[in-house]
């Protein structure tokens, strides 16, 4: 039953990602006015329904596990996708910029796909970790990741728009993507949000180790170091922007580098290095 629900969620996310990408692929203005509204509507409703299904799945999974599911890749990637969609939906609510979905929804879909491929796996969570610290710590971190992925999406939007403006002839033919200033500004806000959430997540994580005495805080933990590198990249970006005018194109590139850092922290460390954070 729960597996079937998950399969449905997966398929809805697949459809939503395809339609989100399609809406971006439409480049001529006449197509844009005729079919894009339909495609966008399907994509957006798909996203909303997918999100509802995913929330339901996570809740049911939580209930069957008896604790906040964050032990295995299944749990973590599903939650990752959930966080990405949540941040995306909030941004759409605030800015009406659905185009962002074309960049973040495929990421969410891939996360769910990974999750689904591990779907039957569960792992026992050690007793000392079963508490609200885990919930707070991981939620904050994943929302931070999601905000960074949104910033990455805005970065790509910026670069696409800039390329169009420099190519000149078709600069005005498409009105899907917002102005350079808008992409840049929203990307920056997402970055700030991400940094705040990540900082809070790290603080909660370190307090947590203080709280449970028998898990010693290890500075040399691969995940901790990698997270701090990621944190530093984004903080540096904010600083450079404030003091040297590093916005626009440079900010877009930094958002992409940051995205790679996030992926390395999230996936890479687990696969190649040993860490107390490893998902089994």
């Amino acid at each position: 039953m729960i597996n079937f629900l998950f399969l449905v969620t997966l398929l809805i996310y697949l459809a939503a990602s395809i339609f989100q990408t399609l809406s971006l692929a439409i480049s001529s203005r006449s197509e844009a006015v005729v079919i894009r509204p339909t495609i966008e509507r399907i994509a957006f409703w798909g996203t909303g329904i997918g999100f509802a299904f995913l929330s339901l799945f996570i809740t049911l999974w939580w209930l069957t596990q008896g604790h906040f599911p964050m032990t295995h890749w299944t749990d973590s990637t599903a939650f990752f996708a959930w966080a990405i969609t949540l941040i995306y939906l909030i941004i759409v609510r605030l800015t009406h910029l659905r185009a962002l979905g074309s960049f973040v929804m495929p990421v969410a879909f891939i996360a769910i796909l990974i999750s689904y491929s591990f779907a039957t796996h569960t792992a026992a969570l050690p007793k000392p970790l079963q508490n609200y610290w885990l919930l707070a710590h991981t939620t904050l971190i994943f929302l931070a990741y999601a905000a960074f992925i949104a910033a990455f999406g805005f970065g790509l939007m910026y670069l696409m728009t800039e390329r169009k403006i420099r190519r000149k002839t078709d600069a005005l033919l498409d009105n899907l993507l917002p102005s350079l200033g808008t992409s840049d500004g929203l990307g920056y806000r997402c970055t700030i949000l991400g940094v705040i959430l990540l900082t809070m997540g790290v603080i909660v994580g370190s307090l947590w180790t203080q709280y449970i005495r028998d898990v010693p805080w290890r500075w040399l933990d691969a995940k901790v170091i990698s997270t701090l590198v990621t944190w530093f990249i984004y903080v540096a970006q904010i600083g450079l922007r404030q003091f040297w005018g590093w916005h626009g194109r440079r900010a877009a590139y930094t958002a992409i580098i940051g995205f790679v850092a996030v992926l390395c922290t999230y996936v890479g460390v687990d696969l190649f290095l040993d860490s107390m954070h490893t998902y089994r």
Partner: peptide, 21 residues
């Protein structure tokens, strides 16, 4: 009715593509 068909309006639309406002 979309798209600027005079040079001065094209300039305005391009400016709107660049600046937030």
């Amino acid at each position: 009715a979309a798209g600027a068909v005079s040079i001065s309006y094209a300039a305005v639309e391009l400016a709107k593509k660049i600046f937030n406002t």
